[in-house]
């Protein structure tokens, strides 16, 4: 292939590429917020669970607050390891409109171990019991801990799968969700 043939080929490819950009342009691409899914950019799937004391919490009623949904179990070592940092961050950012929902995967945990766990770590944020696995299924949980940072509009800003999360990581994600 000589030089002029090559240059013609380059130009044709570039015109085809530019045309494809125009043809495939879709302003609705970023409109994920209306759909609910456990992934950054989507609306957070709703949660409606009770604490061990019977108090009911609904995630969608917390609009206007930044929320960390932390899915955990008592037998999970990284879940245990990150709890003190989560508690510290809850205390530090709570007055700015930040709340933590600690959702225990009760359907795959020992329900009698939850209250001693909460007392051992001095957790003051709401601990919810997922007894049927409904929330676990809605959040498509495949690893624990799984953490979902949700902004004031109810959109997931960040997902952190696995742990333990460090205090610095929590701070960066919480501040992003609070914006």
């Amino acid at each position: 292939m000589n030089r002029s043939q090559r240059i013609t080929l380059y130009i044709l490819i570039l015109i085809a590429g530019a045309s494809w950009i125009f043809i495939s342009a879709d302003p609705t691409t970023a409109a994920m917020a209306g759909t609910s899914a456990p992934q950054a950019g989507f609306s957070a799937p709703d949660i409606n669970l009770k604490t061990p004391q019977g108090e009911e919490f609904t995630l969608s009623e917390l609009r206007g607050k930044a929320v960390l949904v932390n899915l955990w179990a008592t037998w999970c070592p990284p879940c245990r390891a990150e709890m003190p940092a989560i508690q510290r961050m809850y205390q530090e950012y709570n007055d700015q409109g930040f709340i933590v929902l600690g959702v225990n995967m009760t359907y795959q945990d020992d329900p009698f171990a939850v209250t001693p766990f909460v007392e051992e770590y001095g957790l003051t944020f709401p601990i919810l019991l997922d007894e049927t696995g409904e929330t676990g299924a809605a959040y498509q949980v495949r690893s624990l801990p799984s953490s979902y940072f949700i902004n004031r509009e109810g959109i997931i800003t960040e997902v952190v799968i696995g742990g333990p999360m460090s205090e610095a990581l929590l701070r960066t994600r919480i501040e992003e969700a609070l914006k």
């Binding site: 952190v160 742990g163 333990p164 999360m165 460090s166 205090e167 610095a168 990581l169 701070r171 960066t172 501040e175």
Partner: peptide, 20 residues
């Protein structure tokens, strides 16, 4: 990029979180 955050929690610089 998050220098003020890490100034408050400097141990996070060497934490094992791949998300950092």
């Amino acid at each position: 990029q998050n220098i003020t955050t890490f100034a408050k929690s400097p141990s996070g610089i060497v934490s094992i979180n791949p998300d950092i």
